[in-house]
Simulated assay, not measured.
Amino acid sequence: MGRIAYVNGRFVPHGQAVVHIEDRGYQLADAVYEVWSLFDGKLADAEGHFARLERSLEELRIAMPMSRRALTLVLREAVRRNRVRDGLLYLQVSRGVAPRDHAFPGDEVRPAVVITVKAIDRAAAEAKAAKGVGVVTTPENRWGRCDIKTVGLLPNALAKQKAKEAGAAEAWFVDELGFVTEGASSNAWIVDTDGRLRTRDTNANILRGITRHTLLEVIAGEGLAVDERPFTPAEASAAKEVFITGAGALVLPVVAVDGRRVGDGTPGPLATKLRRLYIERVRAGAV
């Protein structure tokens, strides 16, 4: 069975899914998106992703395209039609289709909705986590509202390409003060030389990661503390452990920063444990 996409009220073969050339998401990046992990055909961290979607839309003054209940039904139907058990679901909502103009169109223009689903090889993902990945650093050059999950991802794409060319899995943005903000598609964490878990606070110019939020709850449940303050690439290189979090990465150990080995160059025990606990939690709570 081929992949099926949802485009503005219709399920269509993935290869035939199209949007209008004057969709504002295509021409002006006037759109937001969300990505859900899928476990056993169910949406992981569903509440957090819906809440962030609604906040992003509100910040850009784009109307919610349908009620949350109706959208949930459409998302589940997209998963069902694609017969995906473990994977990722992508949702994009743009302001809609209108003659190109920077200012917003009138209220008669309705938001445009696109949904795609793809399968993930969980065994391969676990093998990757067991080996660990590398990250590289790059200067922060994004706009000042990274808390809104927009499709304006050109700096992120360039950062990811830099990582790919270096043989790494992720790129970390570093601000003008020399601190890591976040990854191109993930939040950044370390276990510092004092054994403290550290990650950047969300008052900085970073996305309010849903995986990050759930992991904080997992960590609290284990009786551990988290120091929400920034760290430098040098601190990451010297750390006991490093890892990243995101809907695609889940909790992914990092074993090298800018080519410098972290610890003994293997995934740390805490990151490995937190990955297992996070997956157990979201699998049990997926809807």
Rank of each mutant, 00 (worst) to 15 (best):
A70F: 13
V287H: 11
V242W: 00
S56V: 08
R55Q: 07
G259M: 13
T266Q: 08
R24Q: 12
A44C: 14
M1A: 12
V262H: 06
A29E: 01
I206Y: 01
L197C: 11
A103S: 13
T138G: 02
R52Y: 03
Q16F: 04
S185G: 15
L91D: 00
A159Q: 02
L71M: 15
T202A: 15
V113C: 08
H14G: 11
I206G: 01
R81I: 00
P99S: 15
A239L: 07
A112M: 05
L71I: 03
I120Q: 13
V117A: 05
I62M: 08
V174D: 05
K131N: 01
V218G: 08
E47T: 14
R261C: 14
D107N: 14
P111F: 02
I206M: 07
G96T: 07
P99E: 15
A284S: 15
A103C: 11
Y26R: 08
G248P: 08
E140P: 01
A171C: 07
M66Q: 07
L88T: 01
R55I: 05
N156R: 10
Q16I: 01
I279K: 14
A124I: 00
L154N: 04
S56G: 15
K162L: 06
V135L: 06
E165N: 04
R24H: 13
D45F: 02
I210T: 10
Y278R: 09
L277I: 03
V109M: 11
E170N: 06
D147W: 07
L252W: 02
L89M: 02
M66H: 07
A271D: 06
D40P: 05
D40V: 07
P155K: 04
T202K: 14
G221L: 05
T214R: 12
S94L: 13
W172N: 01
P99F: 14
T202P: 00
L75Q: 04
V254I: 07
W172H: 02
D192V: 11
A17Q: 10
G183D: 01
D264N: 15
A184F: 12
N8Q: 09
A271P: 10
V113T: 06
H49P: 06
G178D: 02
I219Q: 03
I190N: 03
E59D: 13
V282N: 04
A204F: 03
F243Q: 01
R281M: 12
I115S: 09
G259W: 08
E108N: 15
V97L: 10
V135C: 05
W143T: 08
V282K: 04
A236E: 13
S67M: 03
D192T: 10
M64R: 14
R52S: 08
P13R: 14
E241M: 08
G209F: 02
W189K: 04
V226G: 05
L91P: 00
L274W: 06
A29T: 09
W143G: 13
L73S: 14
I148Q: 02
G134Y: 02
R208C: 11
H49F: 11
G195F: 06
I244G: 00
Y6A: 06
L153I: 02
I148F: 09
R55E: 05
V84C: 10
E241Y: 04
E280K: 04
A286H: 12
A163Y: 02
N141R: 09
K160R: 13
K273G: 11
P155V: 13
